[in-house]
Each structure stands twice: as C-alpha cells, then as structure tokens.
Design a protein around this nucleic acid. Structure first.
Length: 893
DNA sequence: TGAGCAAGTCTTTTT
DNA sequence: GACTTGCTCA
C-alpha cells in the first residue's frame, strides 16, 4: 500500500529527529503543517481511514483542515497525488485549495489532477469514456443560454406554446430533475405530466436526444451521464474506485442528489458495485419526500426530525451498502447551506451517518474569525432554525464591538450612509480590501455603486456580469467552438449571420429543413445545400463562403497555435470589422474584450483545453490588487471574510426574500436565515446591518418592513442606531450629508422605541400584535389566507396605491417617516404572502374547483382554472399570467 | 432583410 | 429601469 514513490508532492525531508524516522504516523508529529492545529482540527486531519464527517462552522478552519489532510496523506505516503479525489463546489474553492496545498507542500499545483469541482471532474471522466454514453470525446458543454435556445427550437418543433411553457421554465425543470439524479425514464409520470401539456417526459427525452445529436452535454449531464456511465459499465467504475484511495468533499451541505449518488458510487469499494440498486432506492425516497411529506402535514410547525425524515428507506439503503467503505471525508456546515434552490439537499449532510454507518463525526466549533459579539449574534440567529445538526460556535477572540443595526429612510440614503461610514473607516486607516458590502439581491448593488462612484470610492463587484457572458465573447466563442466541433449547431446558429451576411430567416429555415432531411449538422448541410439550387443566389454565395472559411480554419487548427487561429477566425469572419465599424459607445470596450479573450487563451495548451475552461469556469481570474471595497451577494461571499461587513437590506421580502418564502415556505425561510447567518459570520470585527423604509423596486418606490431576523438577534450583542437622516424628512436630507452614523442617538435599551414597536405591530398584521420572536412565524403562517387582506390593519396590497410614486428622486414625504420605521400608518405592501407554505402543505382532498371554472383571486384578479391537483390549482389569470395557487385563495365567479 | 420603435417582461442566488 | 421580443415599415 504505502509503497515508496516519487511524485511532485514528495514530502520535504523530515525534521531531524534523534533516533531516525519511525514509520508510524507519529513520524508526522514534527511536520510543520500540523503545528498550530487545535485538537479537533488535528483529529480531522489525522483520522484517515473510514468515513469522516467534519462539521465545520464558519471560521473554524475548514479549508485548513482539508488542505492539511491532503498534505498529510501525501506526506505519509498513503496515496499519490493522483489517487486523491478532492471535490469542491466552486472554482474559487478549488483554486484556493490548490494554492494552499502547493504552499504547504512547497510545490506547484499541477500534481493534483483530481482536485476540482464536481462538474469539472465529471467532465474529465466523461470525456475519457464519452463513446459509452453516446458522445464523442470533444463534446461541447452547453451553458444556460445555449440550453434555452435549444429548448426553444424543440418547443417550436413539438408545437408547444412558448407563451404558456417558456423555455426558461422548462430548462429549470429539467435542470431540477437532473439535480435529483433523474434521467427521463426515472421521472415519475405525475410530475412530468404537469409540464408542457403533459408531455414533460417526452420533452425531456427529446431534449436529451437532441443533445446527443449535437454532441453536447449540459451542466447536469456532466454528473448525470457520469452516473449512468458508472452504472452501466461497472468495469469503468471499478477503474476509478481503484484509483481513488481517498475522497475529500468540500461544502458537503451543498451537494445535490446527483452529486451524492456520484460520490456514493465512487466511494464504494470495487466489488460493491452491484449495490447500485440501493442507490436508486434512496433516490426514490428523496424524490417522494419533500412535497408529499410536507403536504400531509395538517398544521405547520416543526417538521419531524429532519435527519430521520425517511428513516425506513435510508436505513435500508445504508445497511445494504454498509459493507466496506472507502476513506471518504466530507466537510461541511449545515448552517451554511444556501443552495437549496439549486437542488442542494441539506439532507445529505443531516444524515451522513445513515449513509455511512460508523462514520466519525468531528465538530469544529472554535471560531478564530469573529469577535464574541458577532459570533453570539450569528449563533442566536441561526438557533431559530429547526433542522440542524447543532453546533455551538465559540469565540477564541475578544468581545469586540457590538453588531450595529441602523435604519434609513430609503435605499439611496442607506447607500449614502454606507459610503460615509466607509470613508470614516478609511480615514481611521482601515484598508478598503478589508471591507465588504453583502447584499441579498444584485439589484441592490446599483445604488451602492452609484454612490461609490459619486464619492470616488474604489470598489469592485464580485460575481457581477461575467466576462464570458458578454455577447461579443459568446460570439467569438461560437466561432471557435464551431471550428473545434463542426456539429455544434447552436454555435452555428449563433454566428451564421453575425456579422450580417444576408442570411435571414427565410434562408435559415431552408437550411434547417435541408439539414433535417439529410440528417446532418447545419454546417455540413451548408456545404451540401450550396451545391443545389435550393437557395437564392445571394444567400447561397454567402453561405458558400462561410462554409469554405470553416473548412479552411479547421485545417489551420491543426497547424497553427490556437491564439493565432483565433485571430485569423475573428478577422476573416468579419467579426472584428463589424465592431470596428460600429459607432456605438461600447464598441471599443468590446474590441478590448476580444483582445483580452485572445490573450487569455495563451494560458491554455490548445483550443480544446481553452473551451473546456470557459464552459466550466465562466470567470476570468483577474486579480485586481488595487485597494477597493468589495460589493457582492451573500451567496458569493460564502467562504470569504472581512474586517468590516455591511449588510444592507434586512427587510421583509428581501431578506428573507419573498420568492424564497413563496416557493419553499418554511424551508425557504430557514435557508434565508442561513444566508443571514453566512453574512454575519463573514465579519471579523465589525458587522453593520441596515434596513430601509422605502426601497426602489422595478424603478418604483415600495415601502418595506424591517426583517424578522432583526428580532432574532440578541439584544445584548447589538447596538441599534437610529439614522439621523432617516426620518427627518426633506430638511434632514441635506443634514444627512454631514452627519455621521455615530452621531445619531441610540435607542436606549434595544428594541423599545415607539417606532420599532409600531413596526412590529404593523407587521403582525392582525395576527396578534405581540407576536414577535420565536412564535412570530408560527402565528403568521396560521393566518387565514382569505382574511389576510381584510383584517390586515389596513395594510393589504389593495389598499396601498403607492403614494410614493409621485416623486422621481425619492420618497421625500416626511409625514409617515417621522414616526419611526416608516410607521404603521404609511401605506405598506401586503405583509408577507406565504403561499408557498400553503401550497406545500396542501391536502390531497379533492378541490371544489374544476377545470374551466372562472375564479377570482385577491392579488391576481380573475382567471380560469387550467389544472387541478388536490387543492393546488393552476390558474391562467387574465392579467397576471399563469400561477399555481391554493384553492383557499380563490372564490368562484 | 433589417432598422426602428413599442410593448412586454422580469428582476435571487450559479456549476 | 434595463432588457428582450414583436411588430411595422422601408
């Protein structure tokens, strides 16, 4: 096993010890990398055999443990670098791990070929065995944009009304199925029937078939097809099972079912492979669990213990596959699971010990990042969640400053306050690099950016519009893809008439028909059709030239360096010229981007490698070293830390986000709470939360209420400031420029000001005003949905023709504002609708409505019942479009 | 065929 | 408010 070997990660010469080197593991005690680990971390690093789950709370040294563990394995010679499978969730994390391991072992990173994201490793495996799943090794990886265009074509071909079933929605659904590890034949009839006029399943099948003919795979396929490969070809699976001696998984709480299945397969010992049947079982269990179980619950309330949600099944599966296990180590934090919307199954981590019986669970609870106040606030907040494994973060640092909560009249003022505070910090010598503004939704960034621009405050937006998503980059990429892979019809369609070649709809339709008739890709069809009289002379000539050009480029591909090829392609196709001639303002920038694209190609060995990178990584790693404040979403902030963190927008509807509540009810709320928790725990020294009374949404002003999460922060760790400019009305505005946060009056003892109380009451909306804290959501959920708008203390949607719309620059009417947080008297948007929750626990009882009924809905108006599913109805609203609604919200007309 | 304008949509998070 | 789509007209 531990035979001596040579590799790049050959351990550094052991520290000199008297008596020579023992072969025991303890030989590593002197290893410098183990020094400074606390006992739990050390245990997590040194427990190499069997299954290990490391529950690593925020700031407890998770990445350090992972990387040290790898270094340790290498150093002990338990495996070579190529025998360790280390999967991360994001490219960023993979990159960081590579760097850190490199630093630790003192070598370059290339030595870890199987360290990467699930998707990149999946793609790597899939390329090696592509033929076995009906692809060629050079298959194209489609992004969402391509997917949608493909689906649109299919919709048209299948004669499905795109208005009713937007391609985007179908793409999401298919993605969802794939996340759950379901191939078309595994999708239950009922579920598939609800889509595309009952043809959901056929549609999914057709989509997959189309991908195969295009020699393409979407993101989901990178996992799903690998799973299929493993299942259908045990010998291939065995090959990888033998290869990987150790498996490490980062952010395990973010894995979805497909990723789970993928890991299970690889995590078994070679002979175990027939146990694959058991996986399907678990798979089926998960498929059934979420909706149906919730649906049968009569009253909202604590769910049955999360980890045991389908104890019967999962136990069976666990026992069945209990046999020998690989050395698998999963690191994660259930409190940081924020990707449920993308199919992540917190369950995976919650029942790790069911899946890996005898697994060792190690908790890392010592937080080295944040001060005690920040940590206490975050812990108290997250304790409101129910489905948790439970960890208590302990601070290893000092008490520090309290978490600051402040308010502002509107989002512009909030941005102004943040800008001022940052300038103040800057004057005190804080570095901008150590400051971050974390928002819930990207639209919040705009006002903040605007303000920073005005102030001349350097900032950078992380995860903003991406380089590879820009139109000119995608066009250029399409050319290159097509050179690389002539069957890439999507690429062909994208560029066939860019720049304009006079190939309009008519000509393209003709070409399509021709291609279909001949059963060849479009580019090939182009070659053939120009030899016929089918097209008119002008388009025919254009098409002939284009096809000939691709022939030429393809020949050059094999002889020229790929960067040179790219320049030739962009040049000869007329694409560069098109932008040079363009008079619009951003043309220059686009040309610059194209140059940047070609430049970035230099880092790759060949075209194929470059295309792979673009498909999977999607961002350029341009490390701007300038000192600048970071603006990003809460999601993007996971894994990062800053001295000072601003958390604007803690308002109902934004954090927690309305849509999350609507779609996922209580589970959605808990995920939002985790998001808030992630935000707080990013801060080392200062956390500054703010909320506003008025926010601009869709360009018009909407009033809002403070987030319920504010109530869930412990008073003793929070300092509440009342922004001076916040409620002072117009006059206060000018003052606000000169005012400081810290010149404002504190609230005295926490949450006792009249304004705050009123805000609370307004929020209770008839559900019992005292309802705050823990019992609040409960009360809220129990409200009679129909009565909501009548007894909602005048705060229903219907009664809020927003008076704010009248001034374009901001809601400057001081009237309501003076009272406090907007005051209960000001017009409000409807208190949280929680339809998602109601949908989720719909009973199976037959509905009083039937198809074709005309109905009325308080919020959406009149509509027609399109489908009935228990008490969940699909309604085509006359004005609001199609919605799924619970029947209790409806009255017959 | 393509430009220009009007209307409509959608704004959470991403490999 | 920003963007896409659809429509009309030259």
């Amino acid at each position: 096993m531990a035979e001596p070997h040579k590799n790049r990660f050959e351990p550094a010469p052991p520290a000199p010890r008297p008596g020579g080197i023992a072969a025991r593991a303890s030989g590593a005690t002197r290893a410098p990398y183990l020094e400074g680990l606390n006992p739990e971390q050390r245990e997590a690093v040194e427990t190499l055999d069997g299954a290990v789950l490391v529950l690593a709370g925020a700031g407890t040294g998770k990445t350090r443990v992972l990387t040290t563990r790898i270094a340790h394995i290498l150093r002990l010679g338990r495996a070579r670098a190529g025998e360790i499978l280390a999967v991360t969730f994001t490219n960023k994390a993979a990159r960081e791990m590579k760097t850190r391991i490199g630093g630790m072992v003192g070598e370059v990173v290339e030595g870890m070929p199987w360290l990467g994201t699930f998707h990149s490793i999946g793609a790597k495996i899939l390329r090696r065995h592509a033929e076995l799943v009906g692809l060629k090794p050079d298959f194209t990886i489609l992004d969402v944009d391509d997917q949608i265009r493909l689906l649109k074509q299919l919709l048209a071909a299948e004669n499905i009304d795109e208005k009713r079933w937007p391609a985007r929605v179908l793409a999401t659904q298919i993605d969802h199925w794939k996340n759950r590890g379901l191939s078309p034949d595994q999708v239950s009839a009922g579920e598939a029937g609800a889509f595309a006029n009952g043809r959901g399943k056929d549609f999914y099948t057709a989509y997959q078939a189309r991908l195969k003919t295009l020699n393409a795979a979407d993101f989901g396929d990178l996992l799903l097809e690998t799973i299929r490969l493993f299942r259908e070809h045990p010998e291939v699976l065995a090959q990888y099972q033998n290869r990987f001696k150790f498996i490490l998984v980062d952010e395990y709480q973010d894995t979805n079912v497909a990723q789970y299945l993928w890991l299970r397969l690889l995590g078994q010992r070679p002979r175990d492979t027939t146990g694959g049947g058991g996986l399907v079982l678990r798979d089926a269990a998960l498929r059934a669990a979420p909706q149906d179980e919730a649906g049968s619950m009569p009253v909202p309330g604590p769910r049955p213990e999360e980890p045991g949600r389908s104890p019967g099944v999962s136990k069976d599966v666990a026992t069945k596959n209990a046999a020998p296990q690989k050395n698998i180590c999963c690191v994660g934090d259930d409190d940081q699971s924020i990707y449920g919307w993308r199919g992540a199954e917190v369950d995976n981590i919650l029942r790790f010990d069911h899946d890996f019986p005898g697994a060792k669970v190690i908790r890392l609870e010592r937080n080295y990042r944040s001060t005690a106040h920040i940590l206490a606030a975050a812990s108290h907040l997250i304790a409101h969640n129910e489905g948790r494994l439970g960890k208590t973060l302990r601070s290893e640092g000092e008490a520090g400053e309290k978490v600051v909560v402040s308010s502002a009249w509107d989002s512009e003022e909030e941005a102004r306050a943040i800008g001022e505070e940052i300038e103040r910090l800057q004057r005190q010598g804080h570095r901008l690099n150590e400051i971050a503004i974390l928002v819930r939704a990207s639209f919040q960034m705009r006002e903040i950016e605007d303000r920073f621009v005005t102030l001349g405050l350097p900032y950078r937006v992380i995860g903003g519009p991406r380089f590879y998503e820009r139109a000119e980059i995608r066009d250029a990429m399409a050319y290159l893809r097509l050179v690389n892979q002539p069957a890439d019809d999507l690429a062909f369609e994208r560029i066939v008439n860019v720049p304009k070649r006079g190939l309009g709809d008519a000509a393209l339709q003709c070409l399509h028909d021709f291609a279909r008739a001949q059963g060849v890709p479009l580019l090939e069809a182009a070659h053939r059709i120009v030899a016929t009289e089918t097209l008119k002379p002008k388009p025919r000539g254009a098409l002939r030239d284009l096809a000939a050009a691709f022939d030429r480029w393809r020949e050059q591909r094999d002889v020229l360096p790929h960067t040179e090829l790219a320049e030739i392609v962009l040049d000869e196709s007329g694409y560069t010229e098109m932008w040079q001639k363009d008079r619009s303002a951003d043309a220059a920038g686009r040309l610059e981007n194209l140059k940047e694209l070609v430049r970035s190609m230099e880092e790759f060995e060949n075209l194929q490698g470059f295309l792979e990178h673009v498909a999977l990584v999607m961002d350029t790693d341009r490390g701007e070293e300038q000192d600048a404040a970071s603006i990003m979403t809460l999601h993007a902030a996971k894994g990062l830390e800053f001295d000072t963190v601003f958390l604007p927008g803690w308002e109902e509807g934004l954090l927690p986000h309305q849509r999350s509540l609507d779609e996922n009810g209580r589970a959605g709320l808990e995920e939002e709470r985790r998001l808030a928790h992630v935000g707080l725990t990013r801060a080392r020294k200062n956390a500054r939360i703010s909320f506003v009374s008025n926010r601009r949404i869709h360009g018009s002003w909407t009033s809002s209420l403070p987030s319920r999460f504010l109530d869930e922060l412990p008073e003793e760790d929070v300092e509440v400031l009342e922004g001076q400019g916040a409620f002072a009305g117009y006059g206060g505005y000018s003052n606000a420029y000169g005012s400081r946060f810290d010149t404002t009056a504190a609230f005295g003892s926490g949450y006792t000001t009249p304004g705050w109380r009123r805000a609370q009451q307004g929020r209770g909306a008839g559900a019992g005003a005292g309802a705050a804290r823990d019992d609040f959501p409960q009360e809220y959920f129990n409200q009679d949905p129909a009565g909501r708008f009548e007894n909602g203390s005048g705060s229903g949607t219907a009664s809020s023709p927003t008076t704010r719309g009248r001034d374009a620059t901001g809601p400057q009417n001081p009237g309501a504002g003076r009272n406090g947080f907007g005051g209960a008297a000001s017009p409000r948007r409807a208190p949280l609708t929680i339809e998602g929750e109601l949908v989720a626990r719909s009973s199976g009882a037959p509905s009083a409505f039937s198809r074709g009924d005309r109905v009325f809905h308080q919020k959406f108006g009149n509509g027609t019942v399109r489908a009935v599913d228990g008490n969940k109805l699909t309604i085509q609203f006359d004005r609001a479009g199609e919605k799924r609604v619970v029947d209790s919200f409806l009255t017959k007309v």
